[in-house]
Structure formats: structure tokens, C-alpha cells
Amino acid sequence: MSFFELIGKAALGAVIGGALSLDTVAAGQFLLSSPLVACPLLGWILGNPWLGITIGMALALPWLGTLPVGAYTPPDAPCAAMTVTIASILFSSVHPQLPALFVASVAILPAPLLATLAGFGDNLVYHCNERTVKQAERAYLAGNRCAPAQAVLRGLAGFYLKGLGMILIGGLLCWGWLELVALLPPAFYPLAACFYFAILGLGVGTIISSAKRANVILSTITGLVCGLGLAYLTGGVLW
């Protein structure tokens, strides 16, 4: 892949990722920004759906226990997932010799940091929006009928720029991390599968434990037993 092609794909990914990240809070909220949706979409667009799906599955659940209740701004997991997906797909196209699962597993490692950074970005946009809202309130009371629409559009632009910037800056950070990890000897590659599946377990565990309901725990155990029994009966088991 040529340098210009790489830059072009990174820009395309950032523009689409920025638009998808609007769905998290600012517009729509149809769950299009959910990692399970956004990452495969970006994967298809950038030419590596497998990596998109793999990263999307890993990052779909771990943050669902943190709720955007009241004034609390949770880490922006969808933005982090999209950043990681774009960075790892482009990195994988430059380093095709590295196993895809290894790239996916090490790429999701900095996801908490990226999600926290994106959460700070959200707070920054909220801070800017407060000023926008005060100005719009004054203008609306003074008779400017379009003030609410202008304020809403400015808010959307703020969130879009935050998503775009986060994907570009976070993508560079993630790329640097991947370059560093690529120096590891091939003996470490099989460990990536352990980490990847542990993150999947962490995601499911987060959902069950954050529900804090006895019926969820009981039904999980029931589902687990049924699933294992079904796998055994259908010959899907195991090692």
C-alpha cells in the first residue's frame, strides 16, 4: 500500500468514524456507533472486515456497565473502538506478515486509555456547548427564531470535530503502540488469543455483574449449563 493510499484510507476512516460517533450522544442514538456495528462497517469500507468484526466483538460489552446517568460522562468506548479498528486495519495492511488475531488483540490494549481521552473530549465539547447555549438563549429571547437550530448545529459540529480529532490523534497513538509491539518475537503471538478471549470474558462478566440482580446471575448459570449441554450433545465440545 502506497503512502498516499494509506493517508487516503485513514482520512476516509476518520470522516466516516466521526460521523458514526455522532450517534453516541449528539444525534440519532440508534446504536449505529455501537462497536458491534461501527467496527465491521469500517472494516468493510477499509477492506478488512475480519479485523473490524474481531475488534467490534471484543469491545462491544466491557463499557456497557457504565451508564450515562445524570451529569456523569462515561468513557467514549465507541470512539475508542473505531479508532482502534482504523489503526489496526491500516497497520495490518502495512505489516501483512503479522497474524491478524495478534494485531487485533494488541490493538485493543490501549482502548481504555483512548476511551478515557475521548470522554475528556466529550467534556470539552459539553463545556463549549454551555457557552453556545447561553448565547443562543439570549439570542432566542431577543427574537432570533433560528437561535435554537443554530445552537444545535454548532453542538453537532463540535461533537463531529471531537470524533474526527480523536480518531486521528488516537489512531496515531495506537499506530505507535502497534509498531512497538510488532518488535516482539513470534513466540508471543499465541498469547494474543489468551488476551483476546479474556477480554471477551471480561465483557460478558461486566454485563452480568453490573446487572446486580439475582435473576440475571441465575439465568446466566442456566444459559451456561444449557449452552455447554447443547455443545456436548451436538458434538461441538471441545478440546
Binding site: 448459570i221 442456566t222 444459559g223 471441545l238
Partner: peptide, 21 residues
């Protein structure tokens, strides 16, 4: 919530018994 628990248990069984590779 009960359905969520059942599906979580099923997917956990899936992770335990199969891998993507």
C-alpha cells in the same frame, strides 16, 4: 434481565467451547 442472563450464559458457553479460529 432474565433473557439477558440466558444469552450471556449461552455466549459464555460459546466462548468456552469454540474459538474464532
Amino acid at each position: 434481565s432474565i433473557l439477558l442472563g440466558l444469552l450471556s450464559g449461552l455466549i459464555l458457553a460459546g466462548f468456552l467451547t469454540r474459538t474464532l479460529l
